[in-house]
Design a protein around this nucleic acid. Sequence first.
RNA 1: GCUCGAGUGGUGGAAUUGGUAGACACGUUGGACUUAAAAUCCAAUGGACAUUAGUCCGUAUGGGUUCAAGUCCCAUCUCGAGUACCA
Length: 997
Amino acid sequence: MNYDFSKIEAKWQKYWAENQTFKAENNSDKEKFYVLDMFPYPSGAGLHVGHPLGYIASDIYARYKRHQGFNVLHPMGYDSFGLPAEQYAIQTGQHPAITTKTNINRYREQLDKIGFSFDWSREVRTSNPDYYKWTQWIFIQLFNSWYNNDTNKAEDISTLIALFEKEGNATVNTVSDDDILVFTADEWKAFDTKKQQEILLQYRLTYLAETEVNWCPALGTVLANDEIINGVSERGGHSVIRKKMTQWSMRISAYAQRLLDDLNTIDWPQPLKDSQTNWIGRSQGASVTFNVLASEAKQSHQIDVFTTRPDTIFGVSFMTLAPEHELVATITTPEQKAEVDTYIQATAKRSERERMADVKTISGAFTGAYAEHPFTKEPIPIWIGDYVLAGYGTGAVMAVPCGDQRDYDFAKKFDIAIPNVFEGVDISEEAHADKDKTVIANSDFLNGLPYKKAMKLAIYELEKIGHGKGKINYRLRDAVFSRQRYWGEPFPVYYVDGMPKMIDAKHLPISLPEVEKYLPTETGEPPLGNATVWAWCTKENKVVDNSEINNETVFPLELNTMPGWAGSSFYFNRYMDPNNTEAIFSDDAINYWQDVDLYIGGSEHATGHLLYARFWQKFLFDKGVVPKNEFAKKLINQGMITGTSAFVYKDLKLYFTTDEKDKKQLSLNQHKFDQKWVISYNLLSNQEFLLKLFKNTKPSSPGALKLYEKVFNGTEKYIVKAAVNAIHADVSFVNASDELDVEAFKNWREEYKDAEFLLEDGKYIVGREVEKMSKSKYNVVSPDSICEEYGADSLRLYEMFLGPLEQSKPWNTAGITGTHGFLKKLWRLYIDDNGTKFTDAAPTKDNLKTLHKTIKKVAEDIENFSFNTSVSTFMICVNELSSQKCTSKEILEALAILVSPYAPHIAEELWQQLGHTTSIATAPFPAFDASHLVESSKEYPISFNGKMRFKLELPLDLSKEEIEATVMAHEKTIAQLQGREPKKVIVVPGKIINIVG
RNA sequence: GCUCGAGUGGUGGAAUUGGUAGACACGUUGGACUUAAAAUCCAAUGGACAUUAGUCCGUAUGGGUUCAAGUCCCAUCUCGAGUACCA
């Protein structure tokens, strides 16, 4: 009986589905283990072999944990709201729900073929109203909360109102909007409801505010900071401009410190933690207030700055404001107005991208105004410059040119003084930004102090005179939560007199309305503005026709939708109890499953999904909804699988040179053939071949003829070089030896129908290059085709065999014959043409040694996520057992279980052939017994001066002295030494012997 | 620029605490079987020299520590990822 993988795999996939083998129970005496994959966005292109890499790794781990007796939760679902489906809808009119469903079905089909042990009864789709009901629910919880810095957690908004009623807002310690009006308890009570609501919005964890946003005109929506890469949109690469809009925002800044601190409590990759740390961007320093010197006509103003170097405050020689700073217009003197206005206009025109690309150009303008130094009372000129960002800190800096390179460059350019406040430091060439070992000078009371002490004292003195205080600043901005798109979660929000009101949670979900067109309306409103049934009736508590809006009982609904990250910020919790209609999940479910034990996914989500999900988890933790402050204990980033592109070479041109290095001659003396040639890879550097080719096709043009004469009749020796155009060939036309199926290629590309292929040894060999897997490079390999040709087990093994999980590595289908051959060999260990081979024979010593060596290594490998090395271990094991002619059932049963997490189909089949009637999935993992590995002797490497010269088998119970004596007496040792007396003999029992001298 | 990661045969990679560099595969070469092909099996395969025995070189480069370095330290180069005027 042969290894018929397609029959076996179909059989067991059906068995698992019918028997719900991998259904996880929420009530179990077993210990829980939660293995999670980042759920995919179901794109129209389907999966390529790179996508399942992480899923295979997590599946191996999940299956291993089942063998270890855990109750394993291993779910899968779809992040099914998103831009591509909507873009497609705009182009074709097809409802995104339909495309999304089609894509999901295709994904499911592909996933099923690979044999994952997902509990599909728990599938979630973020675009499903049963699911986004809870996205909306969390939004309402955020709206009804504020952040209390005293208790350091989110609290219900009612506790804030109680505070206001008792003592106003002066003493409230919170994270809120910046420009907050201070009021007393009496004033609060006197405010009308609308005013009160406006004030509360400034404190809520999700709030509506006019913010400067990243507007992408091409996509017709705003983007979050993490959706912009190098100043253009992550999706599509469209330009992004800054624009003021009223938007929902999430007050993630309230959690900045906790998001930073708790990174220490989770086992996540360091690079990922680093990038979150970076993104949060905590910096410690002080805020300092400068008074603007009032010119006669004007009232006094103050400018707040944030600085990390209050110790250098005596080095301030000017101030710089962002061109957008609100005070610019007010303080600019009439004489400078024209210059300032010109500058502001010029910078406004430059896009974010230009500004970023052009860091070198220093530009700015003087406002004519002066501020007063808080200590020296000296006047300080106030400039504006676009190196100061409006969005960071206060949009203003105190410039200390001696200690900051940007300030230094600015001062040089505009000829501003550069006072030196560092002891013994030369600043004639550049600023001195180093903090350590720096001693402050020329700074009144700070003189002679090192950086740290000066910093403390400066803050103390600033506080004393009321001109500043210690402050911690974060780069992390509040996250814009509104998108002007159709295919996203609707907000459970309606507007009364311009103020947002939450729909009561019991009326959720608020389902996405139908629209005629998915584009913005003619008046520039988001696509939901096209909906005709999109108003909230407070009497009937349902969505009604827009015509019923009377702003008394029926009100307009919010037109924005939520961003892509909304639905993915809590799905891991929803999997615990995904079909619950009463609650986001039951108490039993969350208390049992708690959190994710292992999360596997791509590193591209470092500052998006993974930061937002941590934020929501912390919020839900504060509200007592979830028991854990962090949702995933351990996280692994799988590396990308790249493609191995194949190239053919056309448009052959020859260059002649007399010297390998003489590049000048290369550009002269060239000859292009008229023939339509496609030349094989190795011929490109074959002198003999190229010369012959040139000789045989004697050119007709005078120039080329001259060259011909020179090369063949001249006295000088020429080196010939080929230049070609490389074009991609579909990788499916290329075999394991890089040989191109020329006929298939010709049929694929009409224009090469009559081209002449210059072959080597009768073959056309392609060039190879590693590139990202993409349709346009014709290097995409789909898992379906691999499953069809080699089987899912071969695919699973091969994906793991390619290399370490975290590393990126190129895919080359050629190598899969290795793991496929292994499975055949494994099969033959159990079954051959005459049927099953296993017997009740007692295992031999060698059998046991091989098995237990394998058990030990594989268990260690899985725990360390070193899946590639286990595959080699299996190969070694099967090679050894084969040559031992092992037929022992005891050994073969254990081996089937070991292999089962990696190659589950063949393992199930062998398990059944061995006589079992239940699935192998929960068979206990074989126990390791070290006694089988105990050796009595060791083949010692004998080194001379560190170089291994020969090996010697010696009993392990010899003492150091005995070993040394035996080795020194050995004939090969004597031969090596050739009469020399060794200086030293190092003996490490059980390891090595090194003879020095 | 800054931060992090990585450089090992023709290729993917192994070497877990400093102790036999190149496991395991792919590819290549030769052989067996076959009318032939596929499949399968056997052997060789880092480089150079050598009839053999063996010798020398070899983990990006240059130094260092050590009886012993792919592994530790210093410097340099190259590639990849993230980030980018963050005051």
